[in-house]
């Protein structure tokens, strides 16, 4: 446990030293929220636009940070031989994976602290009273996406990993009901997308924050991803 916190501290120190990356992680979701919250261009269906948008953008932020940012950074750590060097210390693969997931969670708390007040300022009216479940959703989403990101980063060369992370991000963004409602997708795609972690997170955040929509199915989908993806990442992770 002590090594997890030591590594978490090191990860957070490095994050703080890369201030521009941290800023980008905060600014992009803020721009998304401010733009789509002010311009009514998204097909949100029967849902109140901001009730659809705010949890969706929060889900996008979580996916960007925990999968793409973490995955790409870890890929470059491999190319810098940082992972190989850590592999010669008593820090185990699973301790490293847990520390990285926790560091992402800290960043996401910052994102939530910025995005949610902006959503409220834009007129979002969260009717849900299940905030503990929403926090659990954030944690499950973080574990799921970080696991997926680390599965790729743990095996692929940095350049291929970079392309793979961005490609997967785009796919999950378009299919996962984060910005575009799943109802707008063709039937078979909508059905297939229902088991994606992006769908699980967006749906779960909407039901917990807005107090409407399905709860159990996205929870189960996300819990399965959160259990399997980090375990596979730790198992398949290569130090070099």
């Amino acid at each position: 446990m002590k090594r997890i916190f030591l590594q978490l501290r090191a990860e957070l120190m490095l994050l703080a030293r890369n201030g521009e990356q941290l800023l980008l992680t905060l600014i992009i979701p803020v721009i998304l929220l401010a733009f789509f919250g002010s311009v009514d261009v998204l097909p949100s269906g029967d849902t109140e636009p901001l009730n659809f948008l705010v949890p969706g953008v929060l889900a996008v932020a979580i996916m960007s940070t925990s999968m793409v940012s973490l995955g790409i950074a870890t890929g470059f750590e491999r190319s810098y031989l940082v992972l190989k060097r850590l592999g010669a210390t008593p820090l185990s693969k699973s301790q490293l994976v847990i520390a990285k997931i926790l560091s992402v969670f800290v960043v996401e708390l910052l994102q939530a602290a910025v995005l949610l007040p902006i959503g409220l300022l834009l007129g979002w009216n969260p009717a849900g009273n299940t905030w503990p479940l929403a926090i659990a959703a954030v944690f499950l989403g973080t574990a799921s996406f970080a696991g997926v990101g680390l599965i790729l980063a743990g095996r692929l060369r940095a350049e291929i990993n970079l392309a793979a992370q961005n490609g997967l991000y785009l796919l999950l963004l378009l299919l996962g009901g984060m910005i575009i409602p799943r109802d707008s997708l063709p039937g078979f795609l909508s059905t297939a997308a229902s088991v994606l972690p992006s769908t699980g997170l967006a749906d779960l955040l909407r039901s917990t924050l807005n107090g409407s929509g399905p709860l159990m199915q996205p929870f189960i989908v996300l819990a399965v991803w959160a259990a399997l993806a980090p375990a596979i990442a730790a198992k398949r992770f290569r130090w070099s």
Binding site: K2, R3, L6, Q7, R9, A10, M13, L14, R17, N18, E77, Y80, L81, V82, K84, R85, A88, T89, P90, L91
Partner: peptide, 27 residues
């Protein structure tokens, strides 16, 4: 103890921080 042929440290990491971190990891 392992000394790699090159690299092994994140470019933005400070000398003192990284050495203290490794000492702590070994405990």
């Amino acid at each position: 103890g392992v000394m790699l042929q090159g690299g092994g440290v994140y470019p933005s990491a400070r000398v003192g921080d990284v050495i203290r971190h490794f000492c702590a990891l070994y405990g």
